[in-house]
Nucleic acid binder design. Structure first.
Lengths: 95, 95
DNA sequence: TAAAGTAGTTTATTTTATAAACCTAATAAA
DNA sequence: TTTATTAGGTTTATAAAATAAACTACTTTA
């Protein structure tokens, strides 16, 4: 009846991050923080989890002299997101 | 950009319970346990939270000689569910 | 009447989410 | 040029959640 929900994506902040990343080529830490409204600490932790799961890649570089962390979604991340969305539909009655 | 997700509904089991209840007049504890596959303990706790939030009513009676706990969704519960579904759509790109 | 099953609740444990505190470097102000 | 202040994070501590295990109370069956 109900498909199980991937707990890694069933988290407001991680879902928001992945949701942003599926729509863009890449996004940096500051952009993600602004878009999600999350605290830097929380975002840092959640990005780490997504990376460890292989759902995103994280590249630490510089923009000018300032550090800049760039995130990209992986194929695996896209697949997990799509499956999560399908599963969700079994709960919320969307065709 | 992202609407915040009601934490009371953003829980796999509570969401499943509410999702069932919006579609039926009422459902008893055993039915909910079977449909969700949850343990009785977990279900008991989550039903309690939904009740305390005013999202469902819980009526303890008997079916024959056996105790029987009947749950029903409230107007408030329906409204919260609908709002949750709307909010979710901002994450998963469903029209 | 003893054992097993039903319908739950309560308590304890693990996992999560989140924020607070911290670190390092860069820039701005005194 | 030292001294704040700001930017861009990470690490650690705390609070909240989910979950399972243990328990209660009663019923049915052997």
């Amino acid at each position: 009846m109900f498909k199980s929900l991937n707990p890694l994506l069933h988290s407001e902040l991680r879902l928001a991050v992945v949701s942003i990343l599926v729509g863009v080529e890449s996004a940096d830490f500051v952009f993600l923080r602004e878009q999600t409204g999350a605290s830097a600490g929380n975002l840092s932790v959640q990005i780490d989890k997504l990376q460890k799961a292989g759902y995103i890649t994280v590249e630490k570089g510089f923009k000018g002299k300032m550090p800049c962390t760039t995130c990209r979604i992986t194929e695996q991340g896209i697949a997990a997101f799509e499956e999560y969305v399908e599963s969700l539909k079994s709960y919320i009655g969307v065709r």
